[in-house]
Design a protein around this nucleic acid. Structure first.
Length: 856
RNA sequence: GCGGGCGUGAUGGAAUGGUAGACAUAUCAGACUUAAAAUCUGAAGGGCCCUGUGCCCGUGUGGGUUCGAGUCCCACCGCCCGCACCA
């Protein structure tokens, strides 16, 4: 707990609101276009309005705020907006659980969270605030939906989805736990529904190629997207059916293993399987069995390989006398490749497991030079890079690397006219339909005469009805008495509205563009988009590395195609930074059944001998650095921290202890330390302010040198997201200043500069010091200090002397001393003389200003 | 299975190929105090002995490149993350 004595001298509860009001009154953070200034758009991923801010928000927005304030003080016209990702399932769950309308719940949460964010003193332009659940936002999304539909970027098709039969809705994969709906607990079914899709797969190659240019994105994120898009090159060809039916088309990335084919496998959703399902009860039963269990990871992981022999036989493309059976196999996905494969058990583990189970032949066609053992239970996958040997010489071709073999077989198939090389992508089209109320209505109507018709733009927004109830599962829009009824925009006849709403990822795929003109009558205003876009620095959690960021990249292209963004916005985020979590230790004891019992930090006393429960003295186990979780009792509420220490302390701490891309563990001692340090800086300011301006002292020059070095280092730290290192330099400079015997002039300059360097991190304290030291106006408007290059060069320099690479001594020499002189001095050094023992060095390396190495 | 990242004191971490451990926490000692808290000052990687302006070892392990490696290269061990019946 902070001491009352210190509070009396610097009370954040008084000073922080004071400066926040001063910034507001001066309108410091309101952004307007200004052609004379370079713009800088800094954006943190906007929050979901859960109702409570957490430490992760504090860290994320503090980082953005440091950048925003720094850029502003270096002459940039900064845009730093904030809004709410406000549609989503949680609002409907609250409606069901508590009987509150989703809109009421959401808007109340927004008000609450905004009130919690305000005291943190972020330099946000609240005049641009948007909420995606507001018709003023989603009407533009509906307008763009219609434009994108016209442009062929959106289409409708049947798709297999996770269907919860109790809640009567589609579930995202994340909402399926062990094959059951996360709310209902019902076994999830695979069901085919007509759904709306964004044609994102048409952009696979472009989205993949453009990753190359994203130099200021983490390599990790680029790689994750690359893998997600999943480009592959392979051979597509048909197996002729013995019964003369249409050939079965398959895709393979390893055509070089074709001579090891054992059977042809098709997906349970393949048209042939479908046809068989209708006429063969056994096949129907098998296919039904496959459809159970959903499409989740767990279901896939535990699922046994299941197969059903269709009785159909096909001919091997290289040998018409070689007949292969066609099986339906549960592990084959309809939406990748052609939904059918040829299985090569010797060289694919999955195929091998299947063949061993159903007693199908295993033909070894390769052996590696260092792996000649025949395949038994482990498939041998011929490496693409290594040299491999065909056992069964393939079409006259001999030894090659795996990749050469693949290329050669594709070429062979093409030249013989039975197959062709194709490129495939793993990326699937983005299904945007949700059978949900709390989302953006899809603005189309179903007309008996005209079919599916988009709503006329002048009729937008298609607003959500307010009179809905959530006492029955399912989509309230479906059962609303009148909402669905509307005239067909084409023929004027009676039509029915689409009751699906959009995936909330649509909302977040363009909000960054809306921020550039949040009150415009159209989705964007090209002049504003031209000026403010792209986002110069985007900051958020790595959990959005794939979906949100990929969808946004697609959306920016789609918006350009429909005239809503200029071409330069294809990649909307110039630089991306993914910050780590704020974690906290978990304290546990064990109950009589050896199950963990979680304790709040305030109930635990930490002794040198270990941690104990304050009440009983029972030993407590500490699990360090765990994700904050209510059920683990290790959540730190930012509101409590702000109340106890103030916003500056919270901001300083979340930046100080770890590099920003890594997790930082919240500790009470660390927060205390941050608070104490800020108090020390204030005390220092007080002491310096009380100095007689005429007072002289010693070491003015040294202090100024240190100050300029600190300016250089902190500037570098802020520019390169090295906030923790920048803060360490600020600590060090504060210590130097506190011990300095310099005169009043130098000390005043030093404390004012210190305040400026701290101002992005601790803006309130910085303003307080600034005004205390007679600074001009607001520090938020003061230009960033510039390091004087002349002051960074020392008159003398201390060079370490290494002997054979090990530090043995050092000499201090004038900075511009000639190299020959330094060499002479080094050789005269006592340690060097001793080591040389009268001999001559083999080599003498002098790196000016750096180091001397004597090799003996 | 595929892909990627990371291993530095008791702890979080710092180090453009150039004095390893900055800065902070925890710890210990001292000052102030009747006392405690707060505050201030200082110590501190490990080891050795001949106790010094001394020596040896030290960034997961083993090798390599270099005058010089926490940093670059190779192999191994450990931990973490992402993707995954993707043909």
């Amino acid at each position: 707990r902070p001491e009352e004595q210190t509070m009396a001298r610097f009370d954040p509860r008084v000073t922080e609101p004071k400066w926040q009001k001063a910034w507001d009154d001066a309108g410091v953070f309101q952004a307007t276009r200004d052609a004379d200034k370079p713009k800088y758009y800094v954006l943190e991923m906007f929050p979901y309005p859960s109702g409570r801010i957490h430490m992760g928000h504090v860290r994320n927005y503090t980082m953005g705020d440091v950048i925003a304030r720094y850029k502003s003080s270096t002459g940039h016209n900064v845009l730093h907006p904030m809004g709410w990702d406000a549609f989503g399932l949680a609002a409907e769950n609250a409606a069901m659980a508590k009987g509150i309308h989703p809109a009421t719940w959401t808007y109340q949460n927004i008000a609450d969270m905004k009130a919690q964010m305000k005291p943190l003193g972020f330099s946000l332009d609240w005049s641009r605030e948007i909420a995606t659940c507001h018709p003023d936002y989603y009407r533009h999304q509906q307008a763009m939906f219609i434009d994108m539909l016209d442009a062929g970027l959106i289409y409708r098709k049947n798709a297999v989805v996770n269907w919860d039969p109790v809640d009567m809705t589609v579930l995202a994969n994340e909402q399926v736990e062990a094959g059951r709906g996360w709310r209902s607990g019902a076994l999830v079914e695979r069901r085919e529904l007509t759904q709306w899709f964004f044609n994102i797969s048409a952009y696979s190659e472009e989205l993949l190629e453009a990753l190359e240019g994203l130099d200021n994105w983490p390599a990790k994120v680029r790689l994750m997207q690359e893998n997600w898009i999943g480009k592959s090159r392979g051979l597509e060809f048909g197996f002729d059916r013995v019964d003369g039916g249409d050939p079965i088309s398959v895709y393979t990335t390893r055509p070089d293993t074709l001579m090891g084919a054992s059977f042809v496998g098709i997906s349970p959703d393949h048209p042939i399987a479908r046809a068989l399902e209708a006429e063969n009860p056994e096949a129907a039963e098998f296919v039904a069995e496959c459809r159970k269990g959903g499409t989740t990871e767990e279901a896939i992981e535990t699922a046994e390989k299941l197969g059903f022999d269709t009785g159909i036989r096909v001919r091997h493309p290289l040998n018409p006398d070689w007949e292969l059976p066609v099986w339906i196999a549960n592990f084959i996905l309809m939406d990748y490749g052609t939904g059918a494969i040829f299985a090569c058990p010797a060289h694919d583990q999955r195929d091998l497991d299947f063949c061993r189970k159903y007693d199908l032949p295993v033909i070894d066609t390769f052996f590696a030079q260092d792996n000649p053992a025949p395949v038994t239970d482990t498939a041998f996958v011929p490496p693409k890079t290594d040299k491999v040997h065909w056992v069964d010489h393939f079409a006259g071709l001999d030894v090659a690397t795996g990749q050469e073999a693949i290329d050669a077989t594709i070429e062979y198939a093409e030249s013989h006219g039975w197959g062709q090389g194709v490129t495939k992508y793993r990326l699937r089209d983005w299904g945007l339909s949700r059978q949900r109320y709390w989302g953006c209505p899809i603005p189309v109507l179903h007309c008996d005469t005209c079919g599916v018709v988009p709503e006329a733009k002048e009729n937008l927004p298609v607003k959500l009805p307010e009179d809905v109830s959530f006492d029955i599962p399912g989509n309230p829009l479906d059962r609303h008495p009148t909402w669905r009824d509307a005239p067909c925009p084409k023929c004027g006849g009676a039509a029915k509205r689409e009751t699906d709403t959009m995936d909330t990822f649509v909302d977040s795929s363009w909000y960054f563009a809306r921020f550039t003109a949040p009150r415009e009558d159209t989705p964007t205003n090209l002049a504003d988009a031209e000026y403010w876009m792209n986002v110069d620095q985007y900051i958020g959690g790595v959990e959005h590395a794939i979906l949100h960021l990929l969808y946004s990249r697609f959306f920016a292209r789609a918006m350009h195609k429909t005239g809503h963004l200029p071409a330069k916005c294809a990649e909307p985020f110039d630089a991306l930074f993914t910050q780590g979590m704020v974690t906290h230790a978990i304290y546990t004891t064990r109950d009589e059944n050896d199950r963990p019992v979680y304790h709040f930090p305030e109930d635990v006393e930490i002794h040198e001998s270990g941690a104990r429960l304050g009440a009983t003295g029972e030993a407590v186990e500490i699990i360090p650095s765990a994700k904050m979780s209510k059920s683990k009792n290790n959540v730190v509420d930012p509101l409590n921290i702000i109340e106890a220490y103030g916003a500056d302390t919270a901001r300083w701490f979340v930046l100080s202890d770890s590099p920003p891309e890594r997790d930082v563990e919240w500790t009470a001692s660390g927060a205390d330390a941050a608070y104490k340090h800020l108090g020390r800086v204030w005390t220092l300011c007080d002491r310096i302010a009380a100095m007689d301006p005429a007072q002289t002292g010693e070491g003015d020059d040294d202090l100024m040198r240190e100050m300029h070095k600190t300016i250089r280092d902190v500037t570098m730290g802020v520019e390169s997201f090295g906030f923790n290192a920048a803060i360490a330099k600020l600590y060090a400079f504060t210590n130097t200043l506190a011990k300095s015997k310099a005169g009043a002039g130098a000390q005043k300059t030093a404390i004012r500069t210190l305040a400026q360097l701290m101002s992005p991190m601790t803006p309130h304290l910085a303003e307080e010091i600034w005004s205390h030291q007679g600074g001009d106006g607001l520090i938020a408007l003061a230009p960033w200090p510039v390091a004087d290059a002349a002051m960074l060069i020392e008159d003398t320099v201390t060079l370490p002397i290494q002997i054979n690479g090990k530090r043995r001594s050092e000499i201090t020499v004038p900075k511009d001393m000639a190299k020959e002189e330094v060499e002479k001095l080094a050789l005269a050094d006592k340690a060097v003389v001793k080591a040389l023992d009268g001999g001559a060095p083999k080599k003498l390396i002098v790196v000016p200003g750096r180091i001397i190495n004597v090799v003996i």
